[in-house]
Design a binder for these strands. Structure first.
Lengths: 204, 204
DNA sequence: GAAGAAAAACATACTCAGTAGTCTGTTTTT
DNA sequence: AAAAACAGACTACTGAGTATGTTTTTCTTC
């Protein structure tokens, strides 16, 4: 699970995430990524067998970033409400920290799978990405479900509710731009606002 | 504003929206769209000067679909809460009706503008798309703002709040699949659930 | 309302740029 | 010395856009 990643590989992933974010996962070429590293294709293809594999690696890392950050604050002894609030804050802050990775996730999360006959290997990778993503949202679904049974949350379609919840928490991915002074404070504000909105949307 | 669109042009837009949705706006080729129409490139390039223009046309239509549906139910005499509720329902129902168009919007809404030096014409079209989209969200922002001043909504960062709101209302774009029996009822349920969630997320 | 001209609505066959992936060197580390 | 980590040149293919031909519609004019 914890596949140790070399420094060079990690650097490539960062560059790839950044290019995929700014240019789009399809439009960004391997040469673009290599150029942004001051390198050439050779370096990338030495570490990743194909562009699809590279993309999948970026997506997996995105999922694991948030998974790690959120799992660390889960405490079953808390009420579902309190627990979800901490999870929501942690999620938003982590998304803002590793923004490029999550922008890539959103791009390929629209259900638009290309048309490439994608070598079975790629198909497997994409399946793994989806599996880990679902596993992650399960963390939230569990608390929501607990809260609904509890009576603190309004009884609604679980799938619809959780989907809406995750979208709210991921909304900065669509508009957040780093580089404006006062980063730290603004991020905290955004995390608090969204966490409160998300919780409020659930309450009965 | 109301640029009359011919039947053939409209048919092309539908096919384009469908292809962009299933294959992704980048991966879908003009030939793909033509093939799905039982035609060839010639037909498409006769009506649209470029792929970018076609894409922009799809996006503009998406914005106008929802704009028309929502504007029709706005009634300033209602409380911000009641008005927003009706707007939210109308928005979701319209999104579900013209789903392919809105999937395309989301795909290109991640801020990933390609790298093409895009002839100034395309740049202008994209600007127009963004303008009409912003104009549309203004309809919602106005009511939210009214409600915050009113005291019925919690005082939060307006931009963040509205962004989260729109995302919640657009969430079906990510997971809704048509073709399961009981369409009408399910759509109504989704619209009601999301409208209530959205409103709940705003209340003080 | 028929004949013919003009324009619109396509089809077909090309060009050409960009890009994923490969193959063979060359350098650096172990 | 051997293996890992790259660079650079090359191939094969896809896909946007074009240029020209062909069909259909529309618009006249008798």
């Amino acid at each position: 699970m914890l596949e140790q990643i070399s420094a060079s590989k990690s650097e490539i992933l960062d560059a790839a995430a950044h290019c995929f974010m700014t240019l789009g996962a399809d439009a960004a070429s391997i040469d673009d990524i290599a150029a942004s590293l001051g390198s050439t294709k050779g370096r990338i293809y030495h570490h990743f067998p194909s562009k699809g594999a590279l993309l999948a690696a970026v997506q997996l890392r995105a999922a694991r970033f948030t998974y790690g950050a959120v799992q660390a604050v889960i405490d079953e002894r808390l009420t579902p409400e309190a627990c979800l609030h901490k999870m929501a804050q942690a999620h938003v802050l982590e998304v803002l920290r590793s923004l490029p990775y999550h922008k890539v996730i959103l791009q390929t999360f629209t259900g638009a799978r290309g048309k490439s006959p994608s070598k079975a290997a790629e198909e497997g990778l994409q399946a793994q990405v989806r599996a880990e993503q679902r596993q992650y949202t399960e963390l939230f679904a569990a608390q929501v479900s607990r809260g609904m049974a509890n009576g603190t949350f309004a009884p609604r379609t679980l799938r619809v509710t959780v989907a809406g919840l995750m979208l709210t928490l991921n909304s900065p991915v669509f508009w957040y731009q780093s580089g404006r002074g006062d980063e730290q404070n603004f991020r905290k504000t955004v995390a608090d606002d969204l966490a409160e909105m998300a919780l409020a949307s659930l309450r009965a």
